[in-house]
Design a binder for these strands. Sequence first.
DNA 1: CAAGTCAGTTTACAAATGTCAAATTTTAAA
DNA 2: TTTAAAATTTGACATTTGTAAACTGACTTG
Lengths: 322, 322
Amino acid sequence: MNKSSNIYVDSDRGERLSNVALLYYGEGLTQSEIAKRLQVSRVTVVNLLREARELGIVQIRVDGKQLKENSLARDLREAYGLTDVYISDTFEDAETNRDAALRQLGRVAATAFLDIVETGDRVGIAWGETVLALSEELPRVQVEKVEVSQLIGSMMSDRVPASENCTIRIASQIGAQCYTLHAPALASTADLAALFREEPTISAQLDRLKTLDMVTYSIGNISDDTHMAAAGMASLEELTAARKAGAKGIICCRYIDAEGNECHLPPTDRVIAAELTDLQKAAKRLLVVCGNDRLEATRAALKGGLATHLCVNSALAKALIN
Amino acid sequence: MNKSSNIYVDSDRGERLSNVALLYYGEGLTQSEIAKRLQVSRVTVVNLLREARELGIVQIRVDGKQLKENSLARDLREAYGLTDVYISDTFEDAETNRDAALRQLGRVAATAFLDIVETGDRVGIAWGETVLALSEELPRVQVEKVEVSQLIGSMMSDRVPASENCTIRIASQIGAQCYTLHAPALASTADLAALFREEPTISAQLDRLKTLDMVTYSIGNISDDTHMAAAGMASLEELTAARKAGAKGIICCRYIDAEGNECHLPPTDRVIAAELTDLQKAAKRLLVVCGNDRLEATRAALKGGLATHLCVNSALAKALIN
DNA sequence: CAAGTCAGTTTACAAATGTCAAATTTTAAA
DNA sequence: TTTAAAATTTGACATTTGTAAACTGACTTG
């Protein structure tokens, strides 16, 4: 169905596509001029160019520097002591068209991710719609010797993307080694969770998460329709209790309070995922968030020093400064 | 005059340009839709997008893999034992429009160059119209810890580009440290050349050329209108003598015979440039050539193992195989 | 304060691009 | 050899994009 998923290209066709693309995008010829040269119809040139784009032979990239070098990003950077802040802007109310806002944030986050990741890095990836958006907008770029690991166990939900998807897609786009976590994000009892964690393949992966160079994750709020509830992972009672106990956000299925410290409340003991202290150990911590409903949660994470790099939409950025 | 030479961008404008560019190239909105969102006229959006392209905020790149993965490149690679071959094709007779062919080859060569160069490399750059074409098509991409050195002394000529230009431009585009060679490519006498070579700053640079990781150069033929003659560096008598002695091409102002071995003929002893043995020492040797009049010369260089990577136009590629 | 500059606007038009359906050619398979 | 499938072409058309010229208002600057 999706042409772009077909990696193999008939070898000589690729050369043709590339050179046509260079004539169009590089030399600046019109499609008609190229058609005349190739002795084909203009429609064919249109199709060749589309194919070249779809196959990723032609890549259109936006420089990440400009997304972080502006006054809003600078203010935010200084207010929370961050290394870098990337701002996404759709120039309209992010709440009215959340899908579009998410895609734009995904593109900005993808740019940020490539900006930050370095050769040889061991990278941890969480999941959620925001991280999924990043993975979907990530272009196919080789980054050498990178290992990508899944930070949180898997889970089923029609709303939450299959957790491995984010990790697998990111790994495959940058040609990295991929380590998934073969366990549910949430076990039915604490005892069972403990057994899972001791299982060799799982414990090896959890150990791997303790020595990462970079993590990429998002944050959920603790409203009743938060992902963790929608995915059936936390009950409404548990959420209410957590709210009462002062929890302000959810990272890796774990609650944090207003200061960014972990709250050990149910169902934390049933979770199979990286610890928040594991995240802290990574030198580069990219937090990607979209939407003003995450304001409190994001502020908490930033106060707790859980992020070194932040990627947000402009409305949330402004709210974070006040 | 040239807006793109102005590196500094009003910081908030850059963010606007980037996000508009993402909406257009990423989200795929039309200019009118973007104009409606930004509450500006469509003409303004056109201008913003043009500005973003001119400033390099939007970069359109063609994947190098496709340029080397085709049957012609494979044949050439196997015939001469090369690591990689990149083919440029303008789909018309390269001789009738040499400028266009050169630009296309420059783009392909720029892609190849970025494909080949690695972090920490010490790179040597020769000069000539072909290498200049490469330098002019090189996008602005940061490559860490690279040193770029000039392989051949400088020279004046209206036809040959100022030799430092190639080196300087390439270094500046990839953010590399740049080492120029502050000497003429040709001294008036052999004794003077020897004095030049002993001059501390020059001898230091020549030493530097003995430990390169990568070299990028082109090759000239030995016709009467070759660059070296046009630049007044070699007399017609010298060229005729060289031809009679079996010289087939000119690299770094030095003659090579049909087997790619150096011919020590005048004015070789007056030349101030890297030795051919210095080129050989570099692990990655990119030869960039355009035009069938270089057929014999290129074949000689390849036979002599002077190149590991080759970048040529398709007509020359076909000729090289027969 | 007047002149100049700058970003942006409007209007209008020309050029280029994307898309469709039907006809034709090419290619591969039976 | 025939036939079916795939690729390409044609011609027509709507949409999108690029460009020019004249104009507006805000903001320098001598």
